Simulated assay, not measured.
Amino acid sequence: MADSRVTTVSSNGAYSFTKPNRESITLRVGLGVEGDVHAGVTVKHRSRMAKDPTQPNLRQVHLMHEELFEETRGEGFDLAPGQLGENVTTRGIDLLGLPTGTLLRLGDSAVVKVTGLRNPCLQIDNFQQGLLKQMVGRDDAGTLVRKAGIMSVVVAGGVVRPGDPIVAELPDGPHRALEVV
């Protein structure tokens, strides 16, 4: 994790599966990405709003590792940052291996707190047929592994740009593995 970086930032003010890449995004404490459709104190994902619109928004900022695009390319898929709806695309950090509650410092001042895993949904297959199978797998013990990135909430605001360093601060132990949020 010595050279962990933000490679791309993305946001969209309208509901859409993909998010256009930006020169920068601004994170707002307790809300998420300024101007993004998923920003807010309460849940903004349509399926979750239908169940209970008063739920706290634990999915304010979606981070995804760029290495996943290379992995799926080997299986015949062509993905680019923002296409799977993430806000921050990273390189050089094992996002999926972080424990719940990890703080990620993004650039000069922004900090997000990791809340859990993104659960890959059927929209991924609507985007590219067969891609959903690439977003889940099994580890050596046969446990289901979700690869579609992690979710977080903003605990310190600031501007995030491609090239910004990422510094992970693990919570005090014992660590809790990430679960779907």
Rank of each mutant, 00 (worst) to 15 (best):
L131D: 07
Q123T: 15
Q129K: 13
R118Q: 09
G82P: 09
Q123I: 15
T100E: 14
A110W: 00
I124W: 02
G85Y: 02
G101P: 06
L84Y: 02
T100N: 02
A50M: 07
E70V: 06
L63C: 07
A80G: 05
V111K: 01
N87M: 01
F77N: 09
Q83C: 03
R59I: 02
G107T: 10
T100R: 14
R138N: 06
R46I: 15
L68A: 10
C121N: 07
L103K: 09
P120T: 07
V61R: 02
R48S: 13
T72Q: 01
N57G: 02
N119H: 11
G74R: 12
R59H: 10
V61H: 01
E75K: 12
E66D: 14
L98S: 04
G85E: 07
G116S: 09
N126H: 13
D94R: 04
L122T: 10
K51P: 00
F77D: 11
L131K: 01
D125T: 04
R48T: 09
H45I: 06
V136I: 15
K51A: 13
L132Y: 10
D125C: 02
G107R: 05
H62C: 06
G116M: 07
R138M: 09
K51T: 13
V112K: 01
D94E: 13
M64C: 10
G92L: 07
M49Q: 15
E67D: 15
D139N: 15
R118K: 06
F77Y: 11
L95M: 06
C121H: 08
G82D: 09
N87W: 04
G74Q: 14
N87A: 01
R46L: 15
E86W: 09
Q129I: 11
L58W: 07
E75N: 04
V61C: 02
P56C: 01
N57A: 01
V111W: 00
K133S: 14
V111E: 11
V111M: 03
G101W: 08
T102Y: 11
E66N: 08
F69D: 12
G97Q: 06
Q129N: 11
